[in-house]
Design a protein around this nucleic acid. Structure first.
Lengths: 253, 253
DNA sequence: TTGAAACTATGAACGTCATACACAGTACGC
DNA sequence: GCGTACTGTGTATGACGTTCATAGTTTCAA
């Protein structure tokens, strides 16, 4: 109820609280139009294509006009992160484990569809309406399993982190267009071979052995969908272990 | 042995393979000096303080001289990521679970000591000698538990991702100086209160309830060290579950 | 010992970009 | 209708990454 907080103005706008102008010309834009334009550019050309000028020209105004709506380019990026997120799946009637898997996979898919998200290192706790909705649904899905709210939030955090890591892996080494075309590996079918050329077996015994064994050969080593499931089940097994521990009346460490 | 690969030149230099110059003046610098200077600046002033000019002036050359050693600023950032990493702990004689915990915690600590790392969204598979050494040690620690190399690497990947997520959380919402001072929350003892002011209980029922219950009150909700351990044990429980599944002779899904 | 070759650092210049500011135009309230 | 408050524009600025021609320096070969 103490709503008089000093929120960043972009966040206010994200929640639909655009300032009500009584006098003056109608604003030609709103945060949504600007952000959508920016997202379209990022999807098409990558984040490097997103400049204040390019976004402005796409919505048909001068570059400096955008500053009526966002305080800075950082603000715009923040808004983009919230706006790309679609509506979370509905947890109603789903077993928690299924829902968590679905939830995490959907997050990963979003990251894969908009790889530039990975370049916006905005691992900040979310404040936008869309991302918070995801959190809400996860909490709802975990209702009644015996975890407290803090634990549920930690679970959410771990899952989000995993989605991020995996998406980053897939994007850089395996999947589609190389988004980070700079110091990464290109197609990297040969990541293993590259490593084999670099590693001194004496200094890196275990890794050398793994490479020789072919564990990193191309897509098989890193970017398989099976690999995603693997880590996901790892996490979910952990959650399940915790839940049954709680159910048997133990306390936390 | 097929060493004639087209590696990015920075990577070559990371492995100590500076080109041997027969003619001409001795190079006044090497990649290590440049990268160390950049790291010192980043530690002191944040990543925004790191410009080609500032790094160059710190090592006592003109800005453009750096381009003899790094192809671009991106390259420099890549080198920084490898150089900040210290030596991994020794797995010898440690139970795998202890070592994995230690390993993950050490990675998180590095991230907390150098928060600018989080802003370099370089979740790329590592190619530098230092980061690969960490991977090697993790593989060694998991020797003989019954996982194949691919699975071990997936475990490493999940743990690294978790360290990253947690460090990001701690850095932005709780811990030290606000590194992302832009659209984040400042001290955020009041993240919960901020949320309370934003959330419509009808649209966000579970989250509102959690907030009212105080699950997000200040440092308790997010940034406790207990929270880090919580997620970590989650993951390790998952690994343990997998290991015993493998031990009982099952196959993967 | 001398000269050329190979390589290093420099300084100026360029293009891009985010952003500040003063101004002009526009709609609403009285 | 007049003032006011607000919107979009144009210009300008400063920072930054990067390129290029140049001058300087060290080593090799004769």
């Amino acid at each position: 109820m103490a709503q008089e907080r000093a929120l960043p103005p972009v966040v206010e706008r994200l929640w639909g609280r655009e300032p009500v102008s009584r006098r003056g010309p109608r604003p030609r834009l709103d945060l949504g139009m600007i952000t959508s334009a920016a997202i379209e550019i990022a999807d098409a050309e990558g984040l490097t294509g997103v400049s204040m000028a390019s976004v402005a020209s796409r919505v048909g105004v001068a570059a400096t006009a955008l500053y009526r709506y966002v305080g800075s380019k950082e603000d715009l990026l923040t808004a983009m992160v919230d706006f790309v997120v679609s509506a979370p799946p509905d947890p109603a009637g789903r077993p928690w484990r299924d829902y968590l898997a679905l939830w995490t996979r959907a997050q990963r898919d979003t990251l894969l569809e908009h790889p530039w998200l990975l370049q916006i290192a905005r691992l900040t706790p979310p404040l936008g309406p869309r991302r918070l909705l995801w959190l809400d649904r996860l909490l709802a899905a975990l209702d009644g399993v015996g975890l407290d709210d803090g634990e549920k939030i930690n679970v959410a955090s771990a899952l989000t982190g995993y989605a991020l890591t995996d998406a980053a892996l897939v994007t850089t080494v395996g999947g589609g267009e190389p988004q980070f075309d700079d110091a990464g590996i290109e197609g990297a079918d040969d990541y293993g071979e590259v490593l084999a050329g670099l590693l001194d077996p004496e200094a890196y015994p275990a890794l050398s052995a793994a490479v020789r064994g072919g564990a990193l050969r191309g897509a098989e080593g890193w970017v398989d969908d099976g690999d995603f499931r693997f880590g996901l089940e790892l996490l979910l097994d952990g959650v399940e272990a915790l839940i049954s521990r709680r159910a048997s009346g133990e306390d936390a460490g």
